[in-house]
């Protein structure tokens, strides 16, 4: 089936079996391997993407469900070589170790900050509680998200 959707700001049309998992469509067909697969069962969050402003798990979405949607993957955040403040904060704050959870974490945090610009630590921890990380103990991820929020708030003032 021919599926049309907006992917990282670009309209795309792709011919795919409708019941193909979105994670496979992105990784194998569209070469967007930044969306990781860690469990295939919705339990780790590595495949988190943003669909119409909401985080979803690409391992539990079928290709057909993307029809007409605005989809953002990790590859869609960088614009003209400029990283988002959140990505910068992840680097500066040491939030990245093996990095396999990072794309899902960044997108989850992006969706959080879009809704809650200055989240508390508890809100941050709750927001990323569906994204498992085995390397960091989450602390530097939480700190980096807070750093990005505060930097942005500082700029707004």
């Amino acid at each position: 089936m021919l599926i049309k959707f907006n992917l990282n700001g670009q309209d795309v049309e792709v011919e795919t079996p409708p019941a193909r998992r979105a994670v496979d469509l992105l990784r194998e067909e569209l070469n967007l391997t930044g969306t990781k697969e860690g469990c295939g069962a919705g339990e780790c969050g590595a495949c988190t993407i943003i669909v119409d402003g909401t985080t979803k798990l690409a391992c539990l979405l079928l290709a057909a469900q993307l029809e007409g949607c605005r989809v953002t993957t990790i590859e869609g955040l960088e614009h003209e070589n400029e990283l988002t403040p959140l990505q910068e904060a992840f680097i500066a704050g040491g939030a990245i170790q093996c990095g396999f959870c990072t794309p899902g974490m960044v997108l989850t945090a992006q969706a959080l900050l879009a809704k809650t610009p200055l989240p508390t630590e508890a809100e941050i921890r709750s927001a990323i509680s569906g994204n498992l990380c085995r390397c960091t103990g989450y602390q530097k991820i939480v700190e980096s998200i807070r750093l990005a929020a505060h930097r942005r708030a500082g700029e707004l003032q």
Binding site: L83, I96, G99
Partner: peptide
């Protein structure tokens, strides 16, 4: 000094190619 990780940029933009990403 806390140098930023050499791999951070590629990992935070999803472009780092892990063994799982070879196709």
């Amino acid at each position: 000094k806390a140098a930023p990780r050499a791999d951070a940029r590629a990992k935070v933009t999803g472009t780092e190619k892990y063994a799982a990403d070879y196709y």
